[in-house]
């Protein structure tokens, strides 16, 4: 009896707390963890261990109390009621759509496909987010430059004879170079601006906000045809704010001819580059969702 106890004690001391096995003994007494294991019944402790535990319990009131404590714990745990449901967890179709995942898998489709799809969607969402930011920045840049060049172009044309090189770059500019005022008054606002031609500096100082808006619109329209149908909403917004500042700018900027001749060229090029980038991004955004994760 004592031998058996010592044997078990040695073994449990050999495998202290860190191991998977419960500590059976604690000094002379049974360890609560060991008793818990004993509580769970046959098969968990070895036969010799079980006998030793039984023998010790018969003699030791203290360990019997611990065992009954543990029995009370287990019984109380078992008696705990299931909590009431706060609501039903039944699935609704929009619940499944909200997660932006395929609603149901085809029978036989491997789970890994679903995981791949989920990962793909997540990546796509992140990508779309970044692309949208870049697209927004590009959009602002494109229209900002468009307005700048449009404004100076206008002043240029109004104040001096339009340089040939400049005319060539703006591909859809309708007017021949000899009539500066004509271009100013061209498609968008022929009725708004009286054909002021003879006094060029006066014309540049003259334009009302409405006329300037029209001019900017004109330039924007030119841009729009160049850049394959960029949305027109943003440039209307821009035009609404821009006119108040452009007329003043035109007056001050107008005299410097030579500098402007090369500068708008560069800006045009930059603008084209940006527009191309924007078009690419838009295409990518449209195309991305259609690319399947399965290659």
């Amino acid at each position: 009896m004592d031998d058996a106890d010592n044997d078990i004690q040695r073994r449990s001391n050999g495998a202290p707390d860190g191991g998977d096995r419960a500590t059976l003994w604690q000094g002379e007494h049974l360890h609560p963890e060991g008793l818990s294991e004993y509580l769970d019944g046959a098969g968990l402790l070895r036969a010799s261990e079980r006998d030793a535990v039984r023998a010790h319990l018969a003699d030791c009131a203290e360990c019997r109390a611990v065992l009954s404590d543990l029995q009370a714990v287990v019984a109380s745990l078992a008696a705990l009621p299931l909590p009431a449901l706060p609501r039903s967890f039944a699935l609704t179709p929009d619940m499944l759509e909200a997660r932006d995942l395929p609603q149901q898998l085809e029978v036989g489709q491997k789970p890994i496909d679903m995981l791949a799809t989920a990962a793909w969607r997540r990546r796509q969402i992140a990508l779309t987010r970044y692309a949208s930011v870049v697209a927004a920045v590009l959009l602002v840049l494109v229209f900002g430059i468009d307005l700048l060049t449009g404004g100076s172009e206008n002043a240029d044309q109004a104040a001096f004879n339009v340089p040939e090189a400049f005319q060539q770059t703006s591909s859809s500019a309708p007017a021949p170079p000899q009539e500066p005022g004509e271009r100013n008054a061209a498609p968008a606002e022929g009725d708004a601006t009286p054909p002021a031609t003879e006094d060029a500096p006066a014309a540049s100082a003259e334009p009302t906000p409405a006329a300037a808006a029209g001019a900017a619109e004109d330039a924007a329209a030119t841009e729009a045809t160049d850049d394959v149908a960029l949305s027109t909403a943003p440039d209307e917004d821009k035009d609404g704010k821009e006119p108040s500042t452009t007329p003043a700018d035109e007056v001050t900027v107008a005299p410097s001819t030579d500098a402007q001749r090369s500068e708008p060229d560069m800006l045009r090029l930059l603008q084209f580059g940006l527009a191309l980038g924007l078009a690419w991004l838009l295409a990518a955004l449209v195309l991305l969702p259609r690319i399947s994760p399965r290659r």
């Binding site: 609560p32 963890e33 543990l70």
Partner: peptide, 30 residues
């Protein structure tokens, strides 16, 4: 097994550490 055994032993300790709980607990245990 080890988690359950340790958990139960710990629960017992916690119940015994609280005076109200200990009283209830001792009563039910007896």
């Amino acid at each position: 097994k080890s988690r359950i055994n340790r958990g139960r032993a710990r629960l017992r300790e916690l119940l015994l550490a609280d005076s109200t709980a200990r009283e209830l607990f001792n009563r039910s245990g007896r």
